[in-house]
Design a protein around this nucleic acid. Structure first.
Lengths: 194, 194
DNA sequence: CAGTTTCTGGACTTGAGAGTCCAATTTTGA
DNA sequence: TCAAAATTGGACTCTCAAGTCCAGAAACTG
């Protein structure tokens, strides 16, 4: 009853094809026919691998994209233990979103999944992990004496997450990367203050 | 060819009814039939007042909501000239979004208008005005010597905008107001630093 | 290799919602 | 007052996309 190798490959092809489509065109709403045509599959396959239909498929795509958000920041995000490392991480975040421009696949997905409980769950987990990694980086800097002890790592990590989210939102609305990059600079400056 | 008093009232009723509906239920997507039933109007009225249909109507609603975003922050936002005023403004922002919870009418609208050029325009103008008001507040504080001269008002205002946007996004995803409020606190602390 | 399960193609059904049309009614303004 | 213009009700069409169905091909299993 499990999936055969071929079946698993098809399932994966559907998810990745849909993800690629979202990255490329960022259409207002994706249709199953588009996904079908891009991935060279048929309706019955989509419903075979995602029995409860579109919502289940989009949720799988969202999970796939959410995983990429963090993995695209590696290895920088995982090793925030020097100012140089923070600088590299900052640059990787800015260039990731600069590259994507106004096409935020995860944002497009959220728009279509806003009513489903699973979608907010996916985002919630992503934000929590992101926050945890940044916080761990701050604490590492504190332990090695590079960041003042009086700084609250929890709150500062939250501000980084919010700053990035907001910067990306501004990017999507205005097309300008400046807000994102200068917000990150400001937060790094805050971090360095004595 | 102009609108009669009655006509203008109906038009307004449609916009406000749609806005109220978005505030209350934040449905994945609004339908004209919902709006019609809520506002006690008929299809022909909607198309009479918004000839190019749904998109035009939703854009008008988005504009209406965008105006509210800033007016809800008044008079605080316009008079950021003392630390007490900044505190009141911060509280008004937090409580506004705490009240709305995960129902962000403007966010819901943007999701449905993402493909139209007018929508990003509305948001772009809103963000620019918001940024300008905050920046003006920072500069006023600098002129009265309450904020250090070395602080960059442009960049700091951007960080406030991004922080609020991001905080609201986290609120929508997780239901927690903490990120928004602690990000604002951090930014205010940054502002006060000598 | 025979039987069973998994996989695939594509035609078909169904439902929802945007937009159209026109006749009836009210309001305006000369 | 009375024609012209604005306003209203609601039935109708039309399109599009989600989801169903079934028969045929391929792939496992004993």
């Amino acid at each position: 009853m499990g999936l055969t190798v071929k079946g698993a490959a098809t399932r994966q092809r559907i998810i990745e094809g849909a993800a690629m489509h979202l990255r490329a065109d960022a259409p207002g709403d994706v249709t199953l026919d588009e996904i079908r045509s891009i991935t060279g599959t048929s309706k019955s396959q989509i419903f075979h691998y995602f029995p409860s239909g579109k919502e289940e498929l989009l949720l799988a795509v969202a999970q796939h994209e959410a995983d990429r958000v963090l993995s695209d920041q590696q290895p920088h995000l995982g090793t925030l233990d020097s100012w140089a490392a923070w600088g590299r991480w900052r640059d990787s975040v800015v260039s990731r979103y600069e590259l994507m421009g106004s096409n935020c696949p995860l944002g497009a997905l959220m728009a279509q999944l806003s009513s489903t409980p699973g979608a907010t769950e996916v985002i919630g987990v992503l934000l929590a992990n992101w926050h945890a990694e940044i916080r761990a980086g701050i604490e590492r800097m504190q332990r090695s004496g590079k960041v003042r002890e009086s700084l609250d790592p929890e709150r500062t990590a939250s501000a980084f997450v919010a700053g990035i989210q907001g910067g990306v939102q501004v990017l999507r609305s205005t097309g300008s990367i400046d807000t994102l990059s200068s917000t990150l600079d400001l937060l790094m400056e805050y971090l360095r203050m004595p």
